[in-house]
Amino acid sequence: MRILSSRGTRGAALLAATALALSACSVQGGSGGEGGGDYPARAVEFTVPTEPGGSTDLITRALTKSLEEPLGQSTVVVNKPGANGKIAGKDVFSGNPDGYRVAVMPQSLFAVGPLVVEDPDAIQLDEMTFVKGLTREDYVMVVPSSSPFEKVEDVLAADNVKYGTSGAGTGNQLAQALLFGSAKVNATAVPFDGGGPQLTAVLGGKVDVGTVHVAEAYEQIQAGALRPLVAFSAERLEALPDVPTATEKGYDVVVDQRRFVAAPAGLPDDVRDKLATAIDEAVSSEEYAKLLQDNYITRWEADGSEVGDQLREASERFKTMTTELGVNLKGQS
């Protein structure tokens, strides 16, 4: 049986050669991209490091929608989930610093992640050009309404606390570990696969307490199924003004999640400014404002250098606190 017909082989080889010769054109979508000309000359791609539907995704989609007019170009949102954002980051930040591919990144990847897993290959801050700060989301500790814990003091006086987290390397894990560490409470972390499953476990009384974003818990709190105990924000939450902060209770634990727009390092200043100005205009749109308000998300109005300062400050602070308190996020926190 003849496997290859020589005529077919030649034909295919010729075609393949033609294919390679033609390949010098620009590739759009995927990870291609090149600069030049007056920015922006074509669509700007925003990479979201999570699955569709999460708050990063929603924020980005709302942002890009309002961004098209001030930018004078269309925008594309690409979801590239994986490794807490590292896959998306590595992909975008290794590309050309031309402003056509940017990413919306979470603070936790840089400030919390390194405390949990040692990664020699982690994305460094100097691999990015920070374009603009976007949002801040605060955490609140909750218990089911059937819980014997009425106030945060009750939890901190308990002997053996099982607390839910939404996974290793998340801000809510850090916040609770720091709080229980400062109060010298014997507590065990039970990590779940995201905020939803954690909340389910809290509602079902499978864990004693849990800490989630305000938006995730708000409806349940209103319905009387959950009781908020303490917020991990610097000041009291606008949505839940009666809930004390950890700082008020004498524990200096301020942890939040922040999101920002970043481009590869070396993005020309004029491109960055142009993009930042357009984003400024987009975030003032009514649609975007409504989305933030409906989701109890706070604006984080910071320019590029402030974003960098915040990331450095938070990383440093969390590192110092975990070391001083002897909190080990790597194992049984």
Partner: peptide, 28 residues
């Protein structure tokens, strides 16, 4: 390998030609 480098169009045509002509012995 070529997919992200040169876009999907050319590799797709090339792959189809290869499979149809070489493996499937369809007419040109």
């Amino acid at each position: 390998l070529l997919f992200e480098q040169v876009g999907f169009e050319i590799p797709t045509v090339a792959l189809l030609v290869l499979w149809l002509k070489l493996l499937g012995r369809e007419s040109w």
